[in-house]
């Protein structure tokens, strides 16, 4: 997104610098405070009463982070050694059967690059029986979504719908998706307003490529759907071209898109999508169904 024009600068440099530093200290203090609250909640399990029960939604401006992250670099990431060793119980405590010692449900819907979590908070109530997971590579943005979910759960603790089926994890989906999900585990994957990586030599960093689509096909069940939306026409064409070329995906029709409730949610609910609407930009949608494997393949 291009930045709006800045007002002409009237302050001298020193004042500016001092103000920036003060603002950063304030942001850091805010995040530290939230982090302590988050830690207590995480350790205490959600359903037990805790002395800290944040109900105020976190404020986004304290968590801002530049919009790009290099998917090829070795971030210090926490990821399970395999899907067998992934502990989902802390993330979805209401879907954990402590007597049997296992989850009653598996993650079925994944929002890859979930940003500030706008889609998650809409998908959650629309699919209350399914577990929905957001994956985001930027640390602070992930923390924002965690705080947002904690606040929503506290706020709606007494309601019918408790936001207990949505969660978020910091991760690099381009590298480690198979560490989280079993073969054919997912029924829906969302790619909303992904980083366009305009430069030619950066195209491999795009979230939709021929080779990565094979990995998405691996975690998606037959009949599962990939949802894409972007405000960059070039990127839309790129995603369509690569999905069209991939033998395991088939594009869904305009009519299908019109009747699908997820398309509607995706179009209107994400922060990025709302920003595009405010700026009167265009949004391009493409959805694809996972086809069965060729007969001779296993």
């Amino acid at each position: 997104m291009p930045k709006p024009p800045q007002p002409p600068c009237t302050k001298d440099k020193e004042t500016q610098l001092r103000e920036q530093q003060e603002a950063e200290i304030k942001r850091r203090a805010y995040r530290e405070n939230k982090q302590n609250a988050r830690k207590k909640v995480k350790h205490a399990r959600f359903e037990e009463p805790t002395d800290v029960s944040p109900v105020d939604l976190p404020r986004k401006r304290f968590y801002r982070q530049r919009a790009h992250s290099n998917p090829f670099s070795d971030h210090r990431l926490d990821y399970p050694n395999s899907p067998d060793t992934m502990d989902w119980s802390k993330m979805y405590p209401n879907f954990y059967d402590s007597e049997l010692g296992k989850m009653t449900s598996k993650v079925e819907i994944a929002d890859i690059g979930c940003g500030y979590g706008g889609l998650l908070t809409q998908l959650g109530p629309s699919f209350p029986e399914s577990l929905v997971l957001g994956m985001e590579i930027r640390v602070q943005v992930t923390q924002y979504v965690e705080d947002r979910i904690i606040a929503l759960r506290n706020k709606h603790a007494q309601d019918d719908y408790k936001y207990d089926n949505i969660s978020v994890i910091r991760g690099n989906a381009m590298k480690f998706l198979p560490n989280f999900f079993y073969k054919s585990q997912l029924s829906k994957m969302f790619f909303c307003f992904p980083d366009p990586h305009f430069k030619q030599r950066k195209h491999k960093a795009r979230i939709i490529t021929n080779t990565l689509l094979s990995e998405y096909a691996y975690v998606l069940k037959e009949g599962g759907v990939i949802y894409t939306i972007t405000d960059v026409e070039d990127l839309h064409n790129w995603m369509v071209q690569h999905l069209d070329e991939h033998p395991l995906f088939e594009r869904l029709s305009k009519e299908w898109e019109d009747q699908d409730k997820c398309v509607e949610i995706m179009y209107n609910s994400t922060e990025e999508g709302q920003k595009v609407t405010r700026n009167k930009g265009s949004k391009w949608v493409a959805c694809y169904r996972r086809l069965p494997n060729p007969e001779e393949c296993v």
Binding site: N81, K175, K183, S214, A217, P247, C297, V298
Partner: peptide
């Protein structure tokens, strides 16, 4: 009687794909 392609990477993964239809991933060895 079926061919497979096995690849190993720097991120601890061993991937098994069908061959020549290598876009169909069979499984990962963790």
């Amino acid at each position: 009687g079926k061919q497979f392609i096995i690849t190993g990477d720097r991120d601890e993964h061993i991937r098994i794909s069908n061959y020549p239809k290598s876009y169909v991933i069979k499984n990962f060895l963790f």
